[in-house]
Design a protein around this nucleic acid. Sequence first.
DNA 1: GACCAACTTGCGTGAAGCGCATACTTGCGT
DNA 2: ACGCAAGTATGCGCTTCACGCAAGTTGGTC
Lengths: 208, 208
Amino acid sequence: MDVSSARGLRERKKQATRQALSWAALRLAVQRGLDNVLVEDIAAAAGVSPRTFNNYFSSKAEAIAFRHLDRVEGIAAALREQPAQTPLWTALTDAALSRFGDADSVPDSAWMAGVRLVTSEPSLVAEFLKANARGEQAVAMAVAARVGVDPRVDPYPHLVGGALGVCLRVAMAQWMQPDPPDPPASLGALLRSAIEQVAAGLPDPTAR
Amino acid sequence: MDVSSARGLRERKKQATRQALSWAALRLAVQRGLDNVLVEDIAAAAGVSPRTFNNYFSSKAEAIAFRHLDRVEGIAAALREQPAQTPLWTALTDAALSRFGDADSVPDSAWMAGVRLVTSEPSLVAEFLKANARGEQAVAMAVAARVGVDPRVDPYPHLVGGALGVCLRVAMAQWMQPDPPDPPASLGALLRSAIEQVAAGLPDPTAR
DNA sequence: GACCAACTTGCGTGAAGCGCATACTTGCGT
DNA sequence: ACGCAAGTATGCGCTTCACGCAAGTTGGTC
């Protein structure tokens, strides 16, 4: 049997509902603006009762930010699948790009609209950062396993996870800056460059 | 006249109210637990009407997280006061330690109780991260000014600011981990060490 | 000292968040 | 196959929030 994601119908249904709710929340919020969307609407769009919404998420913002959480946790999963002999930072880069780099299933403009929404509404910003932090945590655990270090004792894995989270945030911010260069850079390229700089210790450009 | 913080009685009163509200929010939440504190209570403790509370903060969590924001923005201010010829990462370390390093005006145990509160309640975590991010932004601007780079074009300042934010978060987490070493490390030492590692590019310890 | 802008306050409203009790599904043992 | 126990979904009701609006009040300026 498959251990990966399906331990019974129960679990699968739960995941499906969770996904349906967060997708509905995101879609509606992008369409109408966050505070023209009621929890009631989201629940209706996902085919569950309003009360059930709160069994899954404790706020609209959390539901929307879950989309990001999902992606970002994918980085940690991808990292665990990297060959063990690959250098850490190469593995991290590949893992990150596998989830945030290449042309996605979601059309780029829709994805960007979502990111723009999340970075504009203050309550969404907070939840976005929380999701990002949880992703960093997941990456930290994967790093700890990979380099064989106890994350409760040695902060190294958390620093790496956090650093990656920063790269992601900065790359995304640059990606959708109001005044893009021509041609606009791809998120993947921005992300790769950010990781490279961090892995180089962010040397003062003045001192070069 | 003093340009620093006082541009008229009005402004000073506003700052005082803001501080009073956030301090009251923190104190009450630590004492009773977050959801045993009503906005009404906080407002009363600060001597303003409940309605006024929401003129300053849009939630209890934001009011509490403002304490952290205040400190973290101090780092950026401290950075701007560092001598120009100091190497960037030295200046950053000194600036950070000036606000988070040494024995504080606040007794350590109280400060730690506050941090513990903020990291335990989910809604506070989100607001804490938002505050931290705003601090990173402020640091980024200071870095941009220092190294003479346009932060809208070059992501370097944001990466540095973000990296510092990560150091802070990780150091704080380690500082109040449930299973502290004996003797417990000081926040300053943990922070310094984290910054050193990041400035060294977080090399894989396995490959050493 | 008089005017204007900024700030505070009270009131009212719509919605959120969640505890609790109840009905329904799913998984498992027999 | 059957039925029981655990896990979920739902409905209801209550408290608290967040904020728009329209006075009243205070600080700054000429």
